[in-house]
Design a protein around this nucleic acid. Sequence first.
DNA 1: TTTCCTATAGTCCATTTGCACCAGGAGCCG
DNA 2: CGGCTCCTGGTGCAAATGGACTATAGGAAA
Lengths: 213, 213
Amino acid sequence: MHDQREQPIRIFIVDDHPVVVAGLTSMLGTQSGMVVAGYASGGEEAVEMLRSRAVDLLLLDLRMPGMNGVDTLHALSRANIHIRTIILTSYETDEDIYRAVQAGAQGYLLKDALQADMVDAIWTVHAGKRYFPRHVAERLAERMTRSELTARELEVLHMLARGLTNKEIGAALDISGNTVRNHVNSIIEKLEVSDRTEAATSAIHRGIIEADH
Amino acid sequence: MHDQREQPIRIFIVDDHPVVVAGLTSMLGTQSGMVVAGYASGGEEAVEMLRSRAVDLLLLDLRMPGMNGVDTLHALSRANIHIRTIILTSYETDEDIYRAVQAGAQGYLLKDALQADMVDAIWTVHAGKRYFPRHVAERLAERMTRSELTARELEVLHMLARGLTNKEIGAALDISGNTVRNHVNSIIEKLEVSDRTEAATSAIHRGIIEADH
DNA sequence: TTTCCTATAGTCCATTTGCACCAGGAGCCG
DNA sequence: CGGCTCCTGGTGCAAATGGACTATAGGAAA
């Protein structure tokens, strides 16, 4: 088993759902070798609190209003605060996972995880290793094989998903409709889909764009 | 204030996320006048347990693997088990809310709700009233004004969202491509969108179809 | 410097789509 | 029975789309 003679792992929780904060506190607070050192309901608040608080491990929600998980990781990095981090989220889109790893997360947990898995993940990451559930790792691998969309293609993708025609997108971006068509064709090719409609739904599914407009 | 001399409200939780169950138990268990009478991680399990358990109020997750929240409400109704129910979910799509109300839920709470709001909702629904946050009620109202898609249109919508052409959809459903086109046109009209691509993204946004394929 | 990628813009062409129609048959409800 | 919706299939046409190309200009990387 784990060595519990040492100092307990000080865990900090960042999540905008009060019920999740309460749940984690309740699940981890009773674990020997771990202690919940505090929590924040948003990224800004978390960065501020972590300046002056000694913490060993961060449990970080990915999707939050305002500053999201990835933004928070970058902000912490800029503030020269380095804490091993496990992303804790309901979503497992390719893009979410990819961005989280890019931003420096060492672990990725889904919110439907069992208490035992959470505890395991925390011990693993605290020990300096990485923790990714199998299907999460698979999605990450799949994402790696795909080429990135360019900034322009992303703009076009967003407008296309809102039902604009190439001509309308061109007018909005002040470029020709022919150019938009070229971008759309690249998008279709890169996402490996058959038409603009599937490009839109697939982008939502993969987490490249949001469903809400 | 509420009358706490009476029997406490016996609350039953159905949610596939252990962390949410733990959070609710922790948040509500300490409230006077309420007691968590049990929990289940899925609909089938919940129906089985509720046959033999006296419960006053159900906190029910809407999206669960296997039997979802709406299915569970119907199953309970068929089993002649009638318990006042609050839907507790992360999502607030028009369709989710509409279906939940149709299935007989008396309240709708989002998982980012504050503890005070949850407690308030529980007292309200237990007192025989309904509880719907303002924006949830607004979405419900908006949904009511829209006409339903027919079963056939839903089939077409699903395939359209996967990038199939009218001809391909026709071949799959064994009808002519012209007929598919008619269905697509009705879909576009009913959803009040400008083309098939927006029909697909809008349907995902509204919760009519799922993003994953 | 040369090479590579991106953004831009264009042409040609076949296919698909969106729109406006019409119309028959099945099924349901008052 | 008469009306209603739904599913079906059709026609005609203008617009949009997707595919296969070519090409130029700018910036970044090797």
